[in-house]
Amino acid sequence: MSARYVPVGWTRAKLAYDAVLLLAVATYVLLYLHLGPHLADPARPLDGPTLLMRAWGSAAFLLLTLALAIGPLARLDRRCLPLLYNRRHLGVLTCLAALSHAAAVLDWYFAFSPTPSLVALLSSEPVRPFIPFGLGALLILCLLAATSHDFWLSFLTPPAWKALHMSLYLAYALVVAHVGFGALQAATDPALALVVLASAALLVALHVAAGLREARRDAGIAPPAPEPPWVLAGPAEAIPEGGAVTIRPLRGEAVAIFRHQGRLSAVTNLCAHQNGPLGEGRVVDGCITCPWHGFQYRLEDGCAPPPYTERLATYRLRQVGGEVWLDPRPNPPGTRVEPVAVA
């Protein structure tokens, strides 16, 4: 947020998240090193360095798959939202696992000649296409990890930052190509191919399911009220106390209508941080709280509480009978609109 920056805004939830992640990765790598020799083809026993590079490589692939699955999972099931809160730490850990994989490769395959290992990697013959795929993915992962601090979001602007971080999908495609042209070519059993295919298929299925669900929801345009430009936002009792409903006018952004202590307030559905869906959040400590990263805004004017400075567009509401009407024209961000008491 726009208060003074800190290296990491630690909370108990973030500490627990990171502890579980680190423990899971350490357990995975140790298990791989321990069980790998027993599971390998006895005719082609694996040496320790090869096991280590495969352990880190597969850990990075699985972490990357998880990082990309969290977004659609959180859209499909709110119980997965806590996985989203600290996803950038997951991304940084993925990058570290990929770097460990690369370091293990350089320390084994290219460490025993007078040629510098990076020169040997790039100029190795015959040409191995999986090397540029892997290097490309590693470069993207490093770039995304290096720009994961909130400073970069503000410095590059949220749309540019978001576009940059969408390149994680390109990194995933490069990793699949890296595995496909590399480890899969030498694999003697179908396990690796199955894991890669199942992971990629799972990601595609999750994104399609989340996309279809959002498309169905977007199809529900709010009908016009008898008096233009107002639109009908549904009955007031349909809005849960401490929660919101999301209304989609014919034109403009979706609007989140919150109910808090029997009064209704409307703000844009897009969080000023990363366009998170505010309407899926809750009122916490009297403030709208984004479900993605916990950014907060006051109900009456859409302003983040001091010392933060983010502001949301607000909207006018009125109640006619038991029905809530919404003026879909946004007020300038931070405009105070008196909440409407539910009759």
Binding site: C142, H149, F151
Partner: peptide, 19 residues
């Protein structure tokens, strides 16, 4: 937001180097 905040600055160096 960076004024008076120093501890986070080393974290920015890899990104500054790349971009």
């Amino acid at each position: 937001a960076a004024r008076g905040a120093h501890a986070f600055r080393p974290l920015l160096l890899p990104g500054l180097l790349l971009l």
